[in-house]
């Protein structure tokens, strides 16, 4: 490619950037805060509930996560979770309910390609990386921490 063509490309890329619609960042951040905060309150309520009935702290963590995942799954099945996310953005995507939504929405979407190679194999098409990197990061930090604690003893 000659210099002139590269120049034209770069000018155009800048033009597109300059003309891009201004995202309503303030509005989107505010909505993310509201939706994410509301889910935080629900999580806190559940956590308090399970702390009262579960014997250990670890178990109340596990049951809280599971309940939130269940709520996300049901809202996805009812077809409302994507609408909440359209309004709330990251406020709906980042909570663990959104993680459940990635699994359930993919399962629903690819059900039509069959139970095994559709639903079964593509359920984790978006959630997969979260599991992979969450597991690797959790393993490495846990390993480091256990090693350090053993050295100190």
């Amino acid at each position: 490619m000659d210099g002139k063509a590269i120049d034209a490309q770069q000018r155009y890329q800048k033009l597109v950037k300059d003309n891009a619609p201004k995202p309503k960042v303030g509005r989107n951040l505010w909505r993310a805060f509201l939706v994410g905060g509301a889910l935080g309150v629900i999580g806190h309520f559940l956590y308090g509930l399970f702390e009262a009935i579960e014997p250990t702290k670890g178990e109340s963590t596990a049951t809280t996560l599971a309940s939130l995942i269940f709520i996300g799954a049901v809202l996805t099945a009812l077809g409302v979770y994507d609408s909440i996310a359209q309004w709330g953005g990251a406020g709906a995507a980042v909570p663990i309910t959104g993680f459940a939504n990635t699994i359930v929405s993919a399962a629903m979407e690819f059900r039509r390609e069959g139970l095994i190679l559709g639903l079964g194999s593509r359920m984790f098409v978006i959630a997969g990386p979260v599991l992979v990197y969450g597991t690797v990061a959790g393993f490495l930090t846990g390993l480091a921490k256990v090693a350090i604690m053993n050295l100190l003893h």
Binding site: D82, Q86, A90, G98, N101, V104, S105, E109, F110
Partner: peptide
């Protein structure tokens, strides 16, 4: 959507463009 983007029910916020 399913070929080029995401599952229909996934929590994606659409951009103005």
């Amino acid at each position: 959507e399913r070929q080029f983007r995401y599952p229909i029910e996934l929590n994606v916020q659409r951009k103005p463009t």
